[in-house]
Design a protein around this nucleic acid. Structure first.
Length: 405
DNA sequence: GTTGAGCGTT
C-alpha cells in the first residue's frame, strides 16, 4: 500500500496517510487526520513553487501518474483562508482570516488587554454555534454515521436525522450541532461526502437572520468635498471600514460599512466632524419615515435584512475595533458570524479576502448551484462533485445602490 | 420495496 506524507503546514512533521488502490488519496482519509482540510499542495523541487494537488469527486490525485505521490511531503489546504494553529481565541475571532499577508492596520491596538476582554465578550455573545442543517443525506445514513462523520471536525453535540414518523425512513436531511464555532465554520466551508453522497450543510432558514446588527451606517449632511477616502480615513479610527459608498450624483449622504457591526452601531446617532463639516451618523436601515427623506425607492427594508452583507472583507486585522480611545462596543445579541456563514452560503468563495463586495444580493438565496440539483446521472449516487462551483463574485458595484437608492 | 428538493412533531 502506498502512503502519502502529509503535514498540516509546510515544515511540520508529516503523517503518512494510506492511498487507495488506484493511487488516489481520499479526502475523507485526509480529513480524518486533518479535519477541515480540503486539499493538498506541495512544493515542487524544480520550480520551488507550491503546486496544488488535483482534486475531484472526493479524491486527490498524485502529481505524477508513474511515480505516484513520490517523496514529497504534502501539506494541507484549508478552505477560504481559514487558518489553523492559532490560539483558540484568535481562531474564533477570525474564522475567515485570509492567508494572504494581512493589510497592516495603521492603528494597531495599544490596548491588548481591553481588546482581549472585548474579544472574549464577542466570542461569548456572538460566536455561538447554531444547529446546522445537512441536506442531501443518503437514505441509509444514520444518526450514528452522521455523528461519526462530523466528529472529524470537532465535538458533535447533536446529530439527528429527520425521519418519517411512521416508517422511520430518513427524509434525507438532518441536523448537527458542534461544540466549537471553529468546527462549525469549517463544516460550513466544506463539502461533505457522507455515506457516498455529497451533502450540503447550511445554517437552517428557521434560524433566520431577522435581528442581525447591520454593519452599515448612514452618514448624513455630507458635503461634496467629502470623498470616500475622507470617510474611510475618518471612520477607520473606530474600526475597520470595509466599504464606503457615496451615491452619485451628489445627494449629501453616504454609507460607511464597518467590519464590526458593533462599531457601526456604536456610532449611530452621533455627529462627527469631517473636514470641518458636521455629519450625522445613523442607521443605514432606514426608518419608515426616512424612506421619504432619503427618496427611497428600493430600500429592501425588511425584505431579507441584507444590510451590509456584501461588505464583509476580512483584512487581516479582523476584529480589531480600533485603538483604545475609540474602541467602543456595545453588547448586541446578534450572531454576527453565523450570519456571515449563512451569507456565505456555506460554500467556498475564493473571494473572501478580496477588497470587493460579494454578490449575490439575497441572503437567503446565496445562489450557489446546488450540487444536488441538476444531478441527472442515471445512477442514484451523486457523481457530479464539480457542480460545487465557486460562486465567484462578479460585479461589485450597484449592489448597495439597489438597496439604498 | 420507490424518491432527491428542502428547513426541525419534541
Amino acid at each position: 500500500m502506498d502512503f502519502v506524507q502529509v503535514s498540516e503546514e509546510e515544515g511540520d512533521e508529516p503523517i503518512e496517510l494510506p492511498a487507495e488502490e488506484d493511487g488516489t488519496l481520499l479526502i475523507s482519509t485526509l480529513q480524518a487526520q486533518f479535519p477541515g482540510s480540503c486539499g493538498l499542495k506541495y512544493r515542487n523541487m524544480d520550480s520551488k513553487a507550491v503546486r496544488g494537488v488535483r482534486s475531484n469527486e472526493g479524491r486527490l490525485f498524485p502529481p505524477n501518474v508513474d511515480s505516484g505521490w513520490g517523496e514529497y511531503v504534502y501539506f494541507c489546504v484549508f478552505p477560504k483562508g481559514i487558518e489553523i494553529n492559532r490560539s483558540s481565541a484568535e481562531q474564533l475571532d477570525s474564522p475567515y482570516r485570509p492567508i494572504l499577508p494581512p493589510i497592516e492596520n495603521k492603528r494597531k491596538s495599544d490596548d491588548n488587554l481591553e481588546n482581549s476582554t472585548a474579544k472574549t465578550k464577542r466570542i461569548e455573545t456572538r460566536l455561538r454555534c447554531t444547529d446546522l442543517i445537512v441536506l442531501g443525506l443518503a437514505w441509509k445514513t444514520t444518526e450514528d454515521s452522521l455523528r461519526e462523520y462530523f466528529e472529524s471536525y470537532g465535538e458533535v453535540l447533536m446529530a439527528q436525522i429527520k425521519k418519517d414518523v411512521k416508517s422511520g425512513q430518513s427524509k434525507g436531511f438532518g441536523f448537527v450541532r458542534f461544540g466549537s464555532y471553529e468546527a462549525q465554520m469549517r463544516v460550513l466551508a466544506n463539502r461533505h461526502l457522507i455515506d457516498g453522497r455529497w451533502c450540503e450543510v447550511k445554517v437552517p432558514n428557521s434560524k433566520g437572520m431577522g435581528h442581525q446588527v447591520p454593519c452599515k451606517v448612514f452618514v448624513g449632511r455630507c458635503t461634496e468635498d467629502i470623498n470616500s477616502d475622507d470617510l474611510r480615513e475618518y471612520f477607520s479610527k473606530f474600526g475597520e471600514v470595509t466599504d464606503v459608498f457615496i451615491p452619485r450624483p451628489f445627494r449629501a449622504f453616504s454609507f460607511v460599512t464597518f467590519l464590526d457591526p458593533d462599531v457601526a452601531q456604536s456610532l449611530c446617532g452621533e455627529d462627527h466632524i469631517i473636514k470641518g463639516v458636521s455629519v450625522h451618523v445613523s442607521n443605514a436601515a432606514p426608518k419608515a419615515e426616512q424612506n421619504r427623506t432619503h427618496q427611497g425607492q428600493n430600500y429592501n427594508y425588511n425584505s431579507g435584512n441584507n444590510f451590509g452583507m456584501h461588505s464583509y472583507h476580512p483584512q487581516g486585522n479582523h476584529m480589531n475595533s480600533g485603538r483604545s480611545g475609540h474602541h467602543r462596543v456595545t453588547s448586541q445579541g446578534g450572531n454576527f458570524l453565523s450570519w456571515m456563514a449563512q451569507n456565505n452560503g456555506g460554500h467556498s468563495n475564493s473571494n473572501m479576502n478580496s477588497g470587493s463586495r460579494k454578490g449575490p444580493n439575497n441572503p437567503n438565496n446565496s445562489g450557489s448551484g446546488s450540487m444536488i440539483k441538476g444531478d441527472n446521472s442515471a445512477s442514484n449516487d451523486q457523481q457530479n462533485g464539480n457542480s460545487w462551483s465557486n460562486q465567484s463574485s462578479g460585479s461589485q458595484n450597484s449592489v448597495d445602490k439597489s438597496n439604498f437608492l
